[in-house]
């Protein structure tokens, strides 16, 4: 079995994820140990808090959905070399636009309400994604900076709406819109005490659809060419601007969908703390998955579990919630570092 090509390929494929995970666990253990928490116990608590019982699985799935969609919203532009960190803002702006439909006609029937709410949320997300796309295509403005600045702007706009014109007076000073009517919610699914809604399987289908669209059609090779060599792409008749704008708008739609599900089904109101940084977590997941739409699905579930466990850890171990921010950063650093070191070593 020496030098079997399959084994070599397998080892090659698994080396970065395995080594990256090992480095991450070492760093995380060091972080917990340094702060006086026994790493072993914390790791067990994380597993329990993520997938221990029906309740934790329900929480995990609830967090998986926005992470999955935001990761897709990061990976799609990355396929043509755009580094977008804008899913957070697109999520907020999509929710803002979708909420407008609900507040305009709260008495509408579900058949009108759901499509209208969804359409506006997708449009809103698309708009927020298209802005950096247009700026990049027309002026060459760096999309990373613009997307992050637009995140802050979208959050401010949501704050304006829920502290101002959209605030429901019956909330007694709590900044939020009125509760969404049942007609404005995605139908629920329940199984063995685990609850979710139809948006989750829909998001998985979207991931598969993107996989087919990008990996199995000419679009994928067009995007790859635009990333690796825009000049050759232009010679081949593949235009940068329309691809850039369309890809960013489509990404915005995905994150916008996450936003409206979060407002309608999870929080039942539009409120300022709509997202617990799902846009950024989605960004990390997309990079950890190597921008592969298929690998994003399980990784989003793992990250959803990590976030759900963080809630539990805060309760049981008095560990500040911000520890997940540190863990996410350490995971990102491990995988980035190991990946780059490997390709450097290979080149040498």
């Amino acid at each position: 079995m020496k030098n079997s090509p399959i084994l070599t390929l397998l080892a090659d494929r698994l080396m970065v994820p395995l080594l990256g995970t090992t480095v991450f666990i070492a760093l995380a253990a060091a972080f917990f140990h340094f702060n006086g928490y026994p790493p072993g116990k914390i790791f067990v608590q994380i597993l329990k808090g993520a997938f221990g019982d029906a309740f934790s699985i329900t929480t995990t799935l609830g967090k998986t959905l926005p992470i999955l969609l935001c990761a897709l919203a990061t990976a799609l532009p990355a396929r043509m070399g755009l580094i977008s960190v804008g899913a957070e803002g697109q999520l907020y702006f999509g929710a803002l636009a979708g909420t407008a439909a609900v507040l305009a006609h709260p008495e509408a029937s579900a058949w009108l309400m759901l499509p209208a709410m969804l359409a506006l949320a997708l449009l809103g997300g698309a708009l927020w994604g298209a802005i950096p796309g247009v700026l990049r295509a027309a002026l060459g403005v760096n999309e990373t900076i613009v997307t992050i600045l637009l995140n802050y702007l979208a959050i401010k706009l949501v704050e304006y709406a829920v502290y101002g014109p959209w605030k429901d007076p019956s909330n007694l000073g709590w900044p939020a819109t009125m509760a969404f009517p049942g007609t404005a919610q995605f139908p629920a699914i329940a199984c063995d005490g685990v609850a979710s809604n139809w948006a989750l399987p829909f998001a998985v289908v979207l991931a598969l659809a993107l996989f087919v669209l990008v990996e199995k059609s000419r679009l994928g090779s067009a995007l790859a060419l635009l990333r690796s060599n825009p000049r050759v792409a232009r010679l081949a008749g593949i235009r940068y601007a329309p691809h850039c704008i369309a890809v960013m708008a489509l990404a915005g739609m995905l994150a916008g969908l996450a936003g409206i599900v979060q407002a309608a089904n999870v929080q039942n109101h539009l409120q300022p703390d709509l997202s617990s940084g799902y846009g950024y977590v989605g960004f990390l997941v997309a990079w950890l998955a190597g921008q592969s739409f298929l690998r994003i699905i399980p990784l989003a579930l793992v990250m959803g579990g990590l976030l759900s466990a963080a809630d539990a850890l805060q309760l049981f171990a008095q560990l500040p919630y911000a520890n997940t921010l540190v863990l996410q950063a350490l995971l990102f650093i491990s995988v980035l570092g190991v990946g780059a070191a490997r390709s450097k070593w290979r080149r040498a």
């Binding site: 580094i83 960190v85 990373t144 500040p320 911000a322 996410q328 570092g337």
Partner: peptide, 26 residues
């Protein structure tokens, strides 16, 4: 990350951003 290991500078900067945000919040 970017000088020694050769990570993309934008990604490396974001890693610094995330870690700084996490450590300072924690």
């Amino acid at each position: 990350l970017c000088l020694v290991l050769g990570v993309n500078q934008i990604a490396s900067g974001l890693a610094v951003l995330f870690l700084g945000n996490g450590l300072s919040s924690f």
